[in-house]
Amino acid sequence: MSKENIKNLEEMTFYPAGPLNQFLVQIGRVVEVDGQQIAVFRLSDDRIFAVLNRTPHPKGGPLAEGIVSGHYLYDPLYDWKIDLTTGLVQAPDTGQVQIFPVKVEGDQVFIATENLQKA
């Protein structure tokens, strides 16, 4: 991440998404905000990542139900491999899913939704 992004990150407002124990390890969960869906993933090392719950595959569909391996997600409908840290689709497929900054404080998960477009 570039310096500019880190600065932005500090300025961002994080909103509470729910307690950590509401997120099963390696199983995604949908968080709704402003009529939009964010798919939240808790990795086996307890890191949390949040992405827009929409596959970049042209046929569309959700992401929350995919198989999680390390910080990668396997799209549940088309088996595309997506890096949850960057949102980038891995070769041979291409594309990027929108990602949202996440922090965990105490037992609460917070997500910054500034870049989320209203539905």
Binding site: Y15, G18, L24, R29, V31, E32, V33, T113
Partner: peptide
């Protein structure tokens, strides 16, 4: 409990 986590979404407000 488990079923809730698996099937239900969570709601989040972007108002603090």
């Amino acid at each position: 409990e488990q079923t809730g986590k698996l099937f239900n979404g969570l709601e989040m407000s972007n108002q603090l």
